[in-house]
Write a protein that binds this DNA or RNA. Structure first.
Lengths: 213, 213
DNA sequence: AAATCTCTTGGTCAATTGACCAAGTCATGC
DNA sequence: GCATGACTTGGTCAATTGACCAAGAGATTT
C-alpha cells in the first residue's frame, strides 16, 4: 500500500525473501511466498526484479560481505596463541549457533549455485572471500602475538575454512553443540602448535606490513 | 520391453536415478527423467515405488554403506603414524576426485533431507556412520602402529569427519586439487602429532613433533 | 488352452510456479 | 490543476511435475 521508491521496495523484498529462506529454506522462497512475506502482490516482484534468479543473485551478493566481520575483535585481548586461535574460532562459532537457519540456507545456496552455470561463480567468490578472511585472521594472530606460522599461510587458511565449514555442516545435521565445541578446541590446539616464536629466535620475514611493537 | 521381476526393475530404476543425479543433480532426477534414463515409461515408476520420496529414501539407504569401505587397506603397510594417517585420508580423497558428481549429490541429498521432517533422520544416520568409520580407522591406526591417541577418540573422529567433509565441499566449489591436498597433508601431520607411544611396546619411533609439509 | 497374475503402456489430472500484462492509483513538478 | 511517471493490483498463461489409471500384453499355473 505505501508508496516507496524502487530501491527501498527491492530491499524490502530481499529482506522478505531472506526471512522466508532462513525460516523454511531456499526452495520455499518462491516469488509468491516472498511477496506474501513482504505484504505485496506478485506483480510488484516483477516490477522490482527481472526474475527470481535476478533476486537470488542479489541476495547472494549481499551475503558475501555479511559473513566476514567476525573474529578479529576476539583475538585482541589474547596473550597466548592457543587462546587467540580458540577465541577466534569460537567467535565465529557463536554466530553459527545464534543463527543456524541462516547458515543452513548458505549451504543450500552454495549447493544450488554449483548446478547453475550462471551462479557457479558466486559460490567460488564466496569461498574465495572465506579464504581471504581466514588469512587475515591468521596474519593478525601472528602479528599481535609475535609468532610466525611454521607452515604456508595459504595452507593454514584453507585448513581454517575447512574446519569451520565442516564443523558447521556437521552441527546442522546433528545439533551436537558439545561435540562441535570439543572438536573446535582440539583444532585450535592443533593450529596453535604450528606457531613458532618469531622475534627472538631467528630472523623473520613478515611479508605483509608490520603492525605492532 | 523385457519382462523382469519387480526387485530387478526397482534396482534398475534406482541405478537410473543415481545416474541422472550424479550427472545433473538431485533436482534433475524427476520421475520422468529417471524413467527415460531407464528406458521405461512413467507408469512403471509408480508400479515400482509408492512415490518419488519413496525412491529417494531407498537411494539414501543404499548410500549409507557405500561410503565406508575406503581407508583401512591404505594403512596396512604404513610404518609411521604420520604416513598412516595421511595415506588413510588420501585413500578417501582419491574417491572424491574420482567421482566428484557422486559427492556433490551427497551434499544435495543431505541439505535437502534436513528440510524434510521424514528424512532428517537419514542425514543424521549418515553422519553417525561417518563418525563410526572415522573411529574405526583411528583405532586401526593406533593398534597397527602401537600408539595411543593423546585425545579422546570421539573428538578425533569428529575432527576427521570435519576435515574430509570440509575439504570435499571446498573442493567441489573451487576444484583446487593442489590446495586441497596440501591442506590434507597438513591435517594429517596435525593428527599424527596427537599420537603418543603406547605403554606396551615402543619400538616405533614417534618421538618427533609434527613434521610439516 | 484357459485362467491368473505380473508387468507395461500411453495418456490424463491437478497443483505449483515463474513470468507477465493491462489497467488502475497516487505523488510530484510544471 | 494537470500531465507525467512511479508504483500497484488482480488476474492470466504456459510449463513442469508428481500422481495415477484403465486397458493390454506376456508369462505362469492349473
Amino acid at each position: 500500500m505505501p508508496r516507496i521508491p524502487l530501491a527501498e521496495r527491492r530491499a524490502q523484498l530481499l529482506d522478505a525473501a531472506w526471512a522466508v529462506m532462513t525460516r523454511s529454506g531456499l526452495a520455499a522462497a518462491t516469488t509468491r511466498a516472498t511477496c506474501a512475506e513482504a505484504g505485496v502482490s506478485q506483480g510488484v516482484f516483477h516490477y522490482c526484479f527481472d526474475s527470481r534468479d535476478d533476486m537470488l543473485r542479489e541476495i547472494a551478493v549481499r551475503l558475501v560481505p555479511m559473513q566476514i566481520t567476525a573474529a578479529d575483535a576476539a583475538i585482541a585481548d589474547a596473550s597466548d596463541v592457543a587462546v587467540a586461535v580458540e577465541q577466534a574460532l569460537l567467535a565465529y562459532w557463536d554466530l553459527v549457533e545464534a543463527d543456524l537457519g541462516a547458515h543452513q540456507v548458505l549451504y543450500e545456496i552454495t549447493v544450488a549455485a554449483l548446478r547453475s552455470d550462471d551462479s557457479h561463480e558466486i559460490a567460488r567468490l564466496q569461498y574465495h572471500r572465506y579464504l581471504d578472511g581466514a588469512r587475515d585472521v591468521l596474519d593478525t594472530v601472528a602479528a599481535t602475538l609475535g609468532v610466525r606460522w611454521h607452515r604456508p599461510v595459504d595452507v593454514l587458511a584453507r585448513q581454517v575454512v575447512t574446519i569451520v565449514d565442516g564443523l558447521t555442516l556437521h552441527y546442522i545435521v546433528d545439533l551436537d553443540s558439545a561435540a562441535a565445541r570439543a572438536a573446535l578446541s582440539a583444532f585450535a590446539a592443533d593450529l596453535a602448535a604450528v606457531a613458532v616464536p618469531s622475534a627472538a629466535a631467528s630472523d623473520v620475514d613478515t611479508s605483509k606490513g608490520a603492525k605492532n611493537v
